[in-house]
Amino acid sequence: MQTIYPITFLKKLLPILSVLLLALLFSPNKSLAEQKDTNFLDSEVSEWIESKDNISGFSMNLKQSSKGISTLSDSKIQIFHNDGNPITSNITDNKKMNLFAVLEYNIGNDAIRDYYFSEFDTEDLEKIKEETLVSYSEAAAETNVKARALAATNNYIRNYSWSFKNSGSSKVAAKITTSVELKRSSSKTDIDGKKGSVWNISSDSQLENKVLNPPFINWYTRLAVPYTNQKLLSWGPKDSSAKSASVSLSGLVPGVSWNFGISGFNIADLSSKSSKYGRWKMTKDITNIQPKKASMEPGIRSTNTKGNFGVELSHTYTRAGGQTHNTGTVSIFVPDR
């Protein structure tokens, strides 16, 4: 069993390394606005379409569609946006959640795409760029420090940010951010008599509770592979009421594992192998009266025998009194066979 480099240790190092990398990547003699102009390649669009057969993403009103992340040089970030207005898209089934920006960039061997969603009618594009510069530097720091524990031939990262409106006001009630890492461990494994691929999908999500009253009491997250040529092999974590939870992914190729902290919360495993999804419920314990933040790092292992590889991601959280917010289901597709 292979153990992944501890995520909690990395998080302690990332703020320091991020500052150093920002200083190296961006000239100290330029303003932040000038740095953004230098490092962002802007494309204004009103529509963004993705599917299992067309994973690069494209816009009907853009003269040149996305060329794909692999064509971008390091330190360049391609941003597709509608000047702070919503982009019409098919990548989520939640009609209340607007897509405001899609960003593509490379860091090392990782091809990264970021999505910014919000329940608001408009968003500040400059703030999105500033958040991206921070996450870019953190990802670069992690790439430089972390030994690649999953010996994969293809690495893809999809980052998501969802902002939720507070009922009856213009304030942000909560924000969920998720980073999904898709790594192909094998492309030539025998799967029920067919040659196929084995994928490990790890996710790192944080719920930030901006409005403490009423407090959120539980949070559901789901990773699914509902496609014909894919199977769910394993998932984690299992039920846990300790200070940490363990994920162990196994089957067909060498296993991988990692731990993450859940102090103040309990996790219930609601996954279904036959329905091909991993699903978890995090509930605050009685001593955690008004939690400001919560984190989950579940994962699944899946096989694929034909075509591009797909994963579905969704979150739902509930406040005391029954108020519920959800991201909707987001579909993720990466090249495979």
Rank of each mutant, 00 (worst) to 15 (best):
S187L: 12
A173D: 06
V247W: 00
T324C: 02
V134Q: 11
G168S: 04
K12F: 09
D336H: 10
L21H: 14
W162P: 06
E181I: 15
W280M: 08
T283S: 14
F265A: 15
E297A: 15
S170E: 05
N266C: 02
T287V: 12
V247P: 09
S43Y: 04
Y5F: 10
N39A: 11
S187F: 06
K171Y: 02
L207N: 10
V330F: 06
L24I: 15
N326R: 13
G278P: 05
A174K: 03
F164R: 11
A139N: 13
I300W: 06
I176A: 09
S56N: 12
F309Y: 08
I77Q: 09
R222F: 09
K238E: 08
V19R: 14
S234I: 13
K36T: 08
M282A: 08
T327C: 04
P28C: 12
Y116I: 15
S59I: 06
S314K: 13
E44S: 14
K276A: 10
Q2G: 05
K188F: 03
R148K: 11
F216K: 04
A242I: 05
A245C: 07
Q78S: 11
A141C: 10
A152I: 04
D190A: 13
W199M: 14
T189V: 10
V134Y: 05
P214E: 00
V102D: 01
K76Y: 00
N166A: 04
K95D: 11
T143P: 01
K52G: 15
K146I: 14
Y5G: 05
V198Q: 03
F309L: 15
S314D: 06
K146S: 10
T305V: 14
T324P: 03
V19W: 01
T316W: 04
N94A: 05
V225S: 08
I16A: 12
V311S: 08
S170T: 12
S295D: 05
K273A: 07
V330W: 01
E119Y: 14
L252T: 09
V19Q: 02
D192W: 07
V172G: 02
Y5V: 14
L182V: 15
E47G: 07
P6W: 00
Y227D: 09
K30N: 04
T178R: 06
G264K: 09
S18C: 11
T132F: 03
L232N: 07
S66Y: 01
F58I: 13
Y227G: 10
G310A: 15
S186Q: 02
W162I: 12
S295N: 08
N200H: 07
V253A: 10
Q206F: 01
Q206G: 08
T283E: 07
F265K: 13
P291T: 10
V225R: 10
T327Y: 00
G68F: 00
N155K: 13
K129H: 01
M296F: 09
D114Y: 11
S240V: 10
R148P: 06
A23E: 02
N154W: 05
F164N: 06
L252W: 11
L99H: 06
T189P: 06
Y317T: 03
Q230M: 12
